[in-house]
Design a protein around this nucleic acid. Structure first.
Lengths: 172, 172
DNA sequence: AAGACTGACTATCTTTGACTTTTATAAGTA
DNA sequence: TACTTATAAAAGTCAAAGATAGTCAGTCTT
């Protein structure tokens, strides 16, 4: 198993054990514990605890400095909003797309079926067409946004219909 | 016996022995074991462990990297699957795509929601990216096929799950 | 000619170390 | 005391080195 993976699960275990959903750690201590370079910790944070992964990382240098990692529970609307508004910009890498979809499904923001549908539309197989990679990234971003919007609209419709039904029932 | 065949059966034996229906292996280790070039492993994977053969292969480069092979049961002779291959060719015009989708929805082959999802992935907005029209048509065809396959697979899964449930109930 | 095989080159991921930046605190000075 | 400066203790950055796997064109076998 890779050191990065070990450190990743160690941190996640810490997070799981903590009362709140955040932990504080000393970069150097952790590095010494695992017998690695301190910058290794930064690497782990940069590759496995990003906002896309659902984490926020803050740090403080100087004497008594530390690193704080918080797992953010995003409520459904927020996450979709964030993705549509900010995260999915003009381009989207294949790997990022997959990661985001997994987050969306795991957080219950979209259904597993919807996730699979979007994934299949973005799959390398679907996009295996002779266009340069930057254009492909742009395409991924556009398709992702369109489909997320479709999901959001559908949910909106569902809610409204449900609400209307309630009102109807109320009025009978 | 050819080396490729030997490696193929070796991997299949590993798969048979594993608890789950997947295995992980190191390309270089395997190559050394069989005294061949590492790329030979890729050749075996490319010719004998394709999706058509019912396998999914994932890999991870860099330190601690590996190759993972999973055996998946395929839904053979599925109706949608078949329909797709015949009807959706190598290219698909925007107009034709919409027409086909409407037919599929109205005939009850796919749900309205699925139709909307596919339509949004194929929408001019999603595909408004600077590529020549013939390429775009090819793209539409590919996305359409991938997504329909996803729908087909999901239905397949549903059926199987339902059947399994019935069997369970039967056995109680 | 088709399939099997290889090797050189490429792409990607991990790990490290040298150098930088920030901050708290201690020491020095008017 | 109040202010400045020096020092040490964090954390950050980035590029290079190491470890895997992928690709592809060409050679060999059948």
């Amino acid at each position: 198993m890779r050191l990065s993976d070990t450190i990743e699960s160690f941190i996640k275990q810490m997070l799981g054990a903590s009362e709140e959903n955040g932990v504080e750690l000393k970069r150097n201590e952790l590095a010494e514990y695992f017998g690695c370079a301190p910058s290794q910790i930064n690497y782990v944070l940069a590759t496995r605890f990003t906002p896309d992964h659902g984490y926020v990382v803050e740090s403080h240098r100087g004497g008594g400095g530390c690193i704080r990692i918080v797992h953010v529970e995003r409520d459904q609307g927020d996450f979709l909003d964030y993705l549509i508004r900010e995260r999915v910009g003009a381009s989207l890498e294949d790997k990022d797309a997959r990661l985001l979809l997994r987050q969306l499904v795991e957080s219950g923001t979209i259904s597993r079926d919807d996730g699979l549908m979007i994934a299949s539309a973005l799959s390398p197989q679907a996009l295996s067409v002779p266009v340069p990679e930057p254009v492909k990234s742009a395409l991924r971003a556009r398709i992702m946004r369109c489909m997320l919007l479709t999901v959001a609209r559908r949910e909106q419709r569902r809610k409204q219909t449900a609400a209307t039904a309630l009102i109807r029932i109320d009025h009978t």
